[in-house]
Design a protein around this nucleic acid. Structure first.
Ligand code: FES
Ligand code: FES
Lengths: 145, 145
DNA sequence: ATAATAAAGGACAACAATATCTTTTATTAT
DNA sequence: ATAATAAAAGATATTGTTGTCCTTTATTAT
């Protein structure tokens, strides 16, 4: 696995996709999303359910329903999605798995790993969900290759 | 989970511990290692078996036997341990789980994620297994807190 | 009202990661 | 030679992640 779990990866891809479609004024059904981000449909449904409960994505049932993002949601940082699935561990945890990371009792990787963590944190905090709509619509960025 | 799997975390901690003890001229038994890095004993045995097969750690059976690191092994980069358990994914994979990462078909996180990956890679390539022996012996660094 | 649609929710299945236990093999000391 | 030690190897158990399926609920269109 990479840095993030598969669940979290699908979640990020799905949210970027929904953001793009929302920008275009469309709501997206699970099937459509799954196809465009290349994820298992039913598994994705579960993921979106969780994001919906967290209020990170909006949804409407029934015909013409689907998932979309309101203005507020489009400005939320990617970090909110990651936290939903991975918890705080990735932002604060020790790189070698010690029960907590501290300056007083550092592991051998502590100094280097702090920087890695900070870079990840900045990436996730500074990136908003709606940030790439333009590039995604123009096809300069991809979610399924 | 953090960036690395539990298996990989135990492996790194174990190797740093064995390195330290090797430096002091001792071989370490599984039980001793497990206690000092706070890992499940039998699971650690499996991990060390794999590292042994890879030639990353040396071992001797029987009384006064145990695990140790020869001069060559002490200079190997931490990356070799990580690759054994996580493969190349962590060094080359896409942060959002796309099947491959490329400049031609980048995901939204590509630019930021490249830097994260590079920092991780540098950390693991530039750190050698024997590098922290002194600090570990003096207790300035820890493997079990 | 009824049928159609689409998300929400619950139950379950497959698989991989983590963990434990037992037997075998190599080595050493007596 | 025998017993003791410790890693190697094999078998199995537990848990978490990933994935599927089926039923229910809300909404819309007819
Ligand atoms: S103690 Fe390990 S990263 Fe800080
Ligand atoms: S394409 Fe996703 S990190 Fe490069």
């Amino acid at each position: 696995m990479g840095i993030f779990s598969k669940t979290c990866e699908y979640a990020m891809r799905a949210m970027f996709y929904i953001a793009q479609r929302s920008q275009e004024g469309h709501r997206s059904g699970i099937k459509e999303i799954a196809e465009h981000i290349d994820s298992p449909e039913h598994f994705l449904a579960k993921i979106l359910q969780k994001l919906s409960k967290e209020g990170l994505v909006q949804s409407i049932k029934g015909p013409n329903g689907g998932f979309y993002l309101d203005a507020k949601s489009l400005t939320r940082p990617l970090a909110d999605i990651v936290t939903t699935f991975e918890g705080e561990q990735i932002f604060t945890g020790c790189g070698m798995g010690l029960s907590y990371c501290s300056e007083e009792n550092p592991c051998p990787l502590h100094n280097d790993f702090k920087e890695v963590r900070n870079k990840i944190t900045r990436m996730l905090m500074d990136t908003t969900i709606g940030q790439f709509n333009h590039e995604l619509i123009k096809g300069q960025l991809t979610l399924n290759k």
